[in-house]
């Protein structure tokens, strides 16, 4: 039960520097707890209330809009160097509520809840009438494109066999008929050139992730698979990722269909945030 005067909040300007600092700390927290999809950047602070907190400090209660970047959450690139996904690429927005404690000059997030949603088809069409929209990740063409691209990557790979972790986004392009996919992969204890049964391969204890972009184009009598994967340095127990390895690219013709892999994760629009306090 409160003693003395009731706690009252103040409402600073949403663009107040201290409010922005709290929002940036919250977005950093969000990105460090996302386990799939892409990092998000701060777009707009919708609302802010600042509550006194006993015995010390203040709590910022924030409403924040974010935008999806092109950096996958496994990509160690600093957020400041990640570009925002443009409307023509079918942007994805995040809508977040945060509570951020400021104490002794330090910000720490005590509550986070975010939902994300893709921009409307109408908005994309307004900017780019011919641009492909985001496709369902369980579309058979998407599933096949990811399988074919990963198989093509593993065939050209002299190291570990890589498994699919998630399909992150996909677009169906009408002309030329092709499927664009982006997906995350992880190294296993199998050697790519020797793998007989991918189901028996296990992820390495020191997780080594990668991120791939691929286009599978329908051709007469087959298809062309163009895939580029960036493999990141292995992650020790404390996740402090280092700069990325050189990019590996292959461009090969592959006869459909490729081998089976684990199912894709939920749609790109789903955003999973780690433990809430």
């Amino acid at each position: 039960a409160p003693h003395g005067p009731q706690l009252t909040y103040s409402q600073p300007n949403c663009d107040d520097p201290e409010t922005e600092q709290a929002a940036l700390a919250a977005v950093d927290y969000l990105n460090s707890h996302l386990q799939q999809g892409y990092k998000h950047v701060l777009n707009q602070i919708d609302k802010v209330k600042v509550w006194p907190r006993r015995p010390f400090g203040v709590i910022f209660e924030l409403g924040v809009d974010t935008l999806e970047s092109t950096c996958h959450v496994f990509d160690p690139t600093a957020l400041a160097n990640c570009t925002v996904r443009q409307v023509a690429e079918h942007a994805v927005e995040g809508d977040c509520d945060f509570r951020v404690l400021k104490q002794d000059g330090q910000f720490s997030v005590v509550f986070a809840k975010c939902d994300s949603s893709p921009d409307s088809a109408e908005d994309v069409r307004k900017v780019c009438p011919q641009c492909p929209l985001l496709a369902q990740l369980n579309d058979t063409r998407v599933v096949h494109a990811v399988e074919a691209a990963l198989a093509a990557f593993n065939v050209q790979n002299n190291g570990s066999y890589f498994q699919l972790v998630e399909t992150s986004r996909a677009q169906l392009v009408p002309l030329p008929p092709s499927t664009r996919v982006e997906f995350a992969i992880a190294a296993t204890d199998c050697v790519a050139k020797e793998v007989a049964d991918p189901a028996k391969c296990n992820l390495l204890a020191e997780k080594q992730y990668g991120f791939c972009k691929a286009t599978v184009t329908e051709k007469l009598g087959g298809e062309e698979v163009a895939v580029t994967c960036t493999v990141f340095q292995p992650q020790p127990a404390a996740p402090q990722p280092q700069p990325a390895d050189p990019t590996m690219s292959v461009l090969v013709a592959v006869d459909p269909p490729g081998p089976a892999f684990p199912p894709a994760g939920p749609p790109a629009a789903a955003m999973v945030v780690g433990p809430m306090v």
């Binding site: 409402q11 600073p12 949403c14 701060l42 777009n43 707009q44 919708d46 942007a91």
Partner: peptide, 28 residues
């Protein structure tokens, strides 16, 4: 025709609403 000159309103500092804040990229 002759028209009366308009009465100028008081010009003061523009007060922006405190929230929402600026859009950094674009609005979805």
């Amino acid at each position: 025709g002759v028209t009366q000159p308009g009465v100028a309103g008081a010009v003061g500092p523009m007060v922006l609403p405190p929230c929402p804040g600026r859009v950094r990229h674009f609005k979805v």
